[in-house]
Design a protein around this nucleic acid. Structure first.
Lengths: 245, 245
DNA sequence: CGAACCCTTGACAGAAATCAACTAAGGTGG
DNA sequence: CCACCTTAGTTGATTTCTGTCAAGGGTTCG
């Protein structure tokens, strides 16, 4: 793996506080790889062999059942995924595929399990990371159960617009069909919801979204700290969402 | 707190492997309390002060937004809840209320955070517990996104019927309205779905459910290891579900 | 006994999925 | 450079699913 990747990985909340010797051990067994867009990195149901760290590009986590599939999250740099499966030594609950050309570090799950047992600081970091992932998934489930599809879209747009320059106009960084799946609706329904929101302070032009009347949009769906907030130090935070609220 | 509670708590996966001295420290700051049915133990948004351990009775975890509310999980003995909020020192994402007369142990969150930092074995247990909670919530979200309401009910009934004596007839151990909310539908819709399933191998009489043709029910909704399974050692496992599949 | 409350049922309204057709954009290969 | 193909996105028509409102039966509990 490229040595220039190491400092950035070392700086991750998950690896920041562990002993250097243990970090070195962990990285010795690890290797980096470049993948083209659209490649399926892991399939749900497979045994968890590697913790994945996204260094460049982005990865979709998704699930399938019968003929249905749905997006569960998108992981951007620098983020990790399927930590929980690695720790439990259990099958992946989600599949993963690259959305673009991506550079991924693969850390053997067995090394991971061995090292957090002997490095208490690392164990504490893993605890923090898992707690964040858990809370993110609780929010995701709450969002699905407590809001209808139009409200979910409104909240998504407001959350996306935060933490960006200008705070008014921004570009969607993933396909609309993926957003639809992430928000639990069909692409057709998303399209109609976009249109419906044009009467409530939002303008859509291709990939560009402009919130020209935030108050009107908030009237449709006020953001909520317990639904739309994000914990600090989370590395896997839904569809590329900035922190805050 | 009653000393007869201690061995049972000590036997929990979460506390099983920690040093006796640390367990004693943790329990010194803890206290047990009996609560009547229907009491709201914690409210979403409050700071996380205590890890809760259900020794007797049962507790509903639920969330609200605007005028909506939904059940997220039910915790039975011996189970813990809101571990993640305690660890992150963050506000609760869910509220909790007793469903019946319950005995709960309250463990100060600050003690918890201090002790997993100095007891690596305990940290490892916390990691395992959080990973299980995370995976349970992933399953919950997948269930909501990949199945319709009738399929969710069918899967719920099959899962409930497992691990019980006879494997054919059993009693629902919570109110139907709560099951409805847990499964993401209205009570009216649940009622209609029950009726609809009577043509597919299920008989409902009050609280008693009989699956007289499991194959017919599986045709409606086959169980799936990645959706309906449960990790071992999880303490908080949805609406009082037995493990397995 | 009355007052809640849960559950059910029916009628209806609204939300969302499906099916089909069409447009637009992007990439490929001649 | 253009014709072609593929795919994402949109739109309309329709069906299906789900929620809402209202009423009634049954049970529990004070």
């Amino acid at each position: 793996m490229r040595t220039e990747d190491l400092p950035e990985i070392r700086h991750l909340p998950l690896f920041r506080n562990m002993l250097q010797a243990n970090f070195d051990d962990l990285m010795r067994g690890a290797y980096a790889q470049n993948f083209p867009a659209g490649l399926e990195l892991i399939q749900q149901g497979q045994p968890a062999d590697f913790l994945h760290v996204v260094v460049e590009g982005s990865v979709e986590l998704f699930s399938g059942w019968q003929d249905n599939r749905c997006t569960m999250a998108v992981v951007d740099p620098i983020g990790t995924f399927i930590l929980a499966a690695c720790i439990k030594d259990a099958p992946y609950l989600m599949s993963a595929r690259t959305l673009e050309r991506s550079r991924i570090i693969l850390v053997p799950a067995s090394d991971l399990r061995a090292i957090f047992r002997r490095d208490p600081e690392f164990a504490v970091s893993v605890i923090g990371e898992l707690a964040s992932c858990y809370r993110a998934m609780v929010r995701h489930a709450k969002n699905l159960k407590l809001r209808n599809s139009r409200e979910r879209l409104a909240a998504y747009l407001m959350k996306q617009s935060q933490g960006r320059f200008g705070d008014e106009s921004f570009k969607l960084n993933v396909e609309k069909r993926l957003i639809a799946s992430y928000l639990g609706m069909t692409p057709e329904n998303l399209s109609r919801n976009f249109k419906a929101l044009e009467a409530h302070g939002v303008k859509i032009e291709g990939q560009t979204v402009t919130i020209f009347d935030r108050r009107a949009l908030e009237a449709i769906c006020p953001l909520d700290r317990l639904l739309d907030g994000a914990d600090e130090h989370s590395t896997q935070n839904g569809v590329g969402l900035p922190f805050g609220i």
